[in-house]
Each structure stands twice: as structure tokens, then as C-alpha cells.
């Protein structure tokens, strides 16, 4: 079982990250996935997070309690959610937006310039797909194939090719990161 949290500020596509991953797992990877979201009444700005519980059998308890994976795309989100990441957990963060408070070696950290990659592809809005590429490569919780299959319907049709490109860019970068820093136990917690 995996517990994953995506976090950032509103408008970064945080909810979409969990939706795409959850759909990929539930529909194309034959896993059980439960996605929950929590955010304030405001639709833009403020800390925002979405959670996924992934399992081989039906998920009963739907909430993330001790996530093994945290994706943080903003400093606020990092400050709020990093302490809940379990020891040895994977932290993937946007290296230009988040300054980690010291590396204590408690978690396995993977910084990535996802916004810059997205801008290189034409729009920072693609940062969430770059992030998902990095996430997919590093955690191997979901297959890249399933992720791409999950995109139609969750990203606008006309942006599908560029979103796939963004995902691939993140995925390549994730593999590079992984090569440099393999996961401690070979699999995601």
C-alpha cells in the first residue's frame, strides 16, 4: 500500500495530479486507488493538497495518515506537509520554489526544476505534468503507460501532445535523478 500527497498552491494543478495518477492506477494499472482532496473555499492561492491511497485490495480507510511520498510545489505546502512525511519517505519538490530546511537525511529528497521545464515547453501550466513524470520515474508506483492513457479527459484535447511531452520531460529527469540517488530499499515506501 502507498500513501501519496501532492501539495502546492491553488492553480498549480495539484488536484489534477492526484486525479491523473488515481485514474491511471484504477483504470489502467489494475490497482485500487482512492483520491481525496482538501482545500479552503478559495479556488486560487493558499496551500492545497490532494491525497492518494493506493492498494492491491479495496481501500477501506480513505485518508493518507503517514504518507510515504510527498510532492511539494510551494514553500507553504512543504512547511505544512513535510513533517508528516514518514521517515525514509520520498520528497519530490520544485527546487526553485521550495527551500528545504536543512537536509537531515530523514527522508529521500529529489529536487526538480519542474516550472522551468514547463516554461521551456511553452507554459508554466504544464509544470504539473512534468511533476507527474518525475514522480512516476522515481516512485514507480504507477506505470508511465497508464499515466499517459489517463490524460485524455483530464487535460484539454488540444494540449494533449504538449502534456505528454511535459510528462516525458519529467520522466527522463526523474530517471536521471534516480540513477544518481537510487531509492534506499529499491521501492517506494
Amino acid at each position: 500500500m502507498h500513501e501519496v500527497r501532492f501539495s502546492g498552491f491553488g492553480g498549480q494543478g495539484i488536484v489534477r495530479c492526484a486525479l491523473i495518477t488515481g485514474k491511471a492506477l484504477a483504470m489502467y494499472d489494475d490497482k485500487y486507488a482512492t483520491m481525496t482532496q482538501s482545500f479552503g473555499p478559495e479556488a486560487r492561492g493558499g496551500a492545497c493538497s490532494s491525497q492518494l491511497v493506493v492498494s492491491e485490495s479495496r481501500v477501506q480507510y480513505p485518508y493518507v495518515t503517514e504518507p510515504g511520498v510527498l510532492v511539494a510545489l510551494s514553500q507553504d505546502a512543504y512547511n505544512k506537509y513535510e513533517p508528516q512525511l514518514r521517515d525514509g519517505g520520498i520528497l519530490i519538490y520544485e527546487e526553485n520554489l521550495v527551500k528545504p530546511i536543512g537536509d537531515t537525511g530523514r527522508t529521500q529528497v529529489y529536487p526538480a526544476p519542474v516550472t522551468r521545464f514547463a516554461e521551456e515547453l511553452g507554459n508554466r501550466l504544464f509544470a504539473n505534468l512534468v511533476t507527474l513524470g518525475v514522480f512516476t520515474a522515481i516512485t514507480r508506483i504507477v506505470t508511465p503507460d497508464a499515466m499517459k492513457k489517463a490524460l485524455p479527459g483530464l487535460v484539454p484535447d488540444r494540449f494533449l501532445p504538449v502534456n505528454i511531452k511535459a510528462f516525458d520531460r519529467g520522466y527522463e529527469y526523474g530517471l536521471e535523478l534516480l540513477e544518481r540517488h537510487p531509492l534506499a530499499r529499491g521501492v517506494a515506501p
Binding site: 492526484a18 483504470m27 482512492t34 483520491m35 481525496t36 482532496q37 480513505p62
Partner: peptide
């Protein structure tokens, strides 16, 4: 609200 906004297969 939780079930209403929770996504599953």
C-alpha cells in the same frame, strides 16, 4: 462531502 468529492473507480 467526503464521499461526494472522493474519486475512486
Amino acid at each position: 462531502e467526503t464521499v461526494g468529492h472522493m474519486h475512486e473507480k
